[in-house]
Design a protein around this nucleic acid. Structure first.
Lengths: 337, 337
DNA sequence: TTGTAAGCGTTATCAC
DNA sequence: GTGATAACGCTTACAA
């Protein structure tokens, strides 16, 4: 079973059945105006009966642009797997892509294979555009896609020009968070980051500092060290005078609240924790995480819209989507005395 | 920027540069024996300099089978997003696929769109095989792929024939779990299931009953009701004499242990909980979940191997992968008196 | 409004 | 060992 079926039905079969020429079928299927509604209907009926659909490879080779978005993620299985953001992204991408007849080609690569995969997929014409995630400082992929001439959109990175980007409006996000914390009496707040090379890190650092200064809160920065024996204990030991932390990664924030009491720090009594992303995971741990929900699905939809413009040859402007919103749960509380 | 580059390099350019004919290039690139090693090297060099790769659509249209695996998931964004299994699956699929030059086309669909998408992707020749997950009782997709003549492999379902399947060996898994629980003094154990229509549910039910009978444990079945106001409280209220539960879904198990104490049930003192799948989520909640780890990555690799056989026209036998293993953590303890 | 014919970039066939 | 030449299934001028 499942040997490839002997004879594939082609446009010629449909044409024959509808009593027209192949090109008429093509016209009808591509919404070209030069075919009467009557024959178009006949053609569609014939195609339906034969269960025919235009062959993807054929139409691609004959000029009609393809419809496949490449998503190449340079992460280990593990760091990919424990980031709920990606589930939201994948799920959010899928629907707008389907709406325009595109599909998503996904792969995970090791860092040193990354460029090869972009070159290969583009060179083979396997994909027709790329979505760039986890954008790093001086990301080589920006130059690469430009060199290749591949349409590409950045997700989540504040890059100025070249490749259009979709970013989440978070000018005011830190102000919102710090306002919440300051209102609870916190005077020292630390920002916890992993993945130092990521392009958004610097921008967020600056916004954090600025927002803190405006509110008279002392801002510090602490790096998450996954190599430490007990990363949570290690981190908590380096917090200095901070009584609250804002954690870039939701899964790390979750780890922190789950494990902190076991190393002698009570959340939220002694330490308040805010996660910079939100998902079901934040509701799973105890105390539930106060988190900044980002409009991931809308970002995905916007990115797809930009991509569509690009492949049509139109220029595409970077866009900002708004909708960050602080979801206050149980991991933030008044500062300890 | 990023307008499609004006001129694409083709096999003819490479041939010209290497001073050979296009077919020689093709031969060299497809490991055909009729080209000398010397010219092959020259050809490869020329291709490298020009950064050329065989056009995917062109080679596909000219008979060479494609290399794209379709994965169509009929889940809502939400149920997809909160199942860590899928992250493991995607990550695990990606590497063996890359090894054989395939890519993964992923989409989420609503149940009533499912068949249409399979037909469309196959009809367009957009994919060359399917991986079927979330197989249901009397799953219509089995007949569908057979009718289409599409190579397909089932993942995780104990289906007898037609489409080859990859399943995880869990003949002994329930025995292992129940042995663990019986050893802790539990005499009544409930199996908690969501997703009643799934094909593996029945088989697991039977194995659970059998293993329980052999160990003299009373087996009961309880359905998770997501529509209840407080699904956890609702479930706990229907447990009868059971002092331990085995939960089919890891994320539900996590929800249960997290929320149970809030509705007056202490885990593991009053109730032991075992999750039927394992991931980082099990280590996140408190108490950490005792869970059955499944060899997801190996399943994925095996499925890809079967798929490869199928598209080459060979027959493929269903396979079972072993390696289920009970990871004892903190959610299981001696039965209450 | 419809049909004819020429590509698109590759692989396969079959002479050379 | 190498190179013309004809497919592959579709789109798209252009002619009817």
């Amino acid at each position: 079973m499942t040997a490839t079926s002997p004879k594939r039905v082609t446009i010629a079969d449909v044409a024959r059945r509808a009593g027209v020429s192949p090109s008429a079928v093509s016209h009808a299927f591509n919404g070209r105006p030069n075919v009467s509604e009557a024959t178009a209907a006949r053609i569609r009926a014939a195609a339906d009966e034969l269960n025919w659909r235009p062959n993807y490879a054929s139409r691609k080779i004959s000029g009609q642009g393809g419809r496949s978005l490449g998503l190449v993620i340079a992460r280990s299985r593990d760091t990919f797997g424990r980031d709920p953001f990606f589930m939201r992204l994948l799920a959010g991408l899928t629907e707008p892509l389907a709406d325009i007849g595109w599909s998503l080609s996904l792969t995970l690569v090791q860092a040193d294979e990354e460029e090869r995969v972009y070159r290969q997929w583009w060179g083979e014409q396997r994909v027709d555009a790329f979505l760039l995630v986890d954008v790093r400082d001086d990301d080589p992929r920006l130059g690469l896609v430009e060199q290749l001439g591949a349409p590409a959109v950045l997700l989540g990175a504040p890059v100025e020009d070249g490749v259009p980007a979709v970013t989440v409006q978070d000018e005011t996000a830190f102000a919102t968070v710090l306002d919440h914390l300051a209102g609870l009496g916190h005077r020292g707040v630390a920002r916890v980051t992993d993945a130092p090379g990521l392009a958004h890190t610097g921008a967020r650092d600056r916004r954090f500092s600025r927002a803190a200064a405006e509110l008279g809160v002392e801002a510090t920065f602490v790096a998450w060290d996954p190599a430490a024996g007990d990363p949570v204990a290690d981190l908590l030991g380096r917090l200095g005078a901070a009584t609250a932390i804002v954690v870039d990664s939701e899964s790390i924030a979750a780890q922190i609240v789950a494990h902190a009491p076991e190393v002698g720090v009570r959340v939220p009594d002694q330490l308040s924790v805010v996660a910079w992303e939100d998902s079901w995971v934040s509701t799973l741990v105890r105390p539930r995480l106060t988190a900044l929900d980002a409009p991931v699905e809308e970002s995905a939809r916007t990115a797809v819209a930009l991509l569509e413009q690009l492949v049509r040859g139109e220029a595409a402007e970077s866009r900002t989507v708004s909708g960050r919103r602080l979801v206050v749960r149980d991991s933030t509380a008044p500062a300890p005395q």
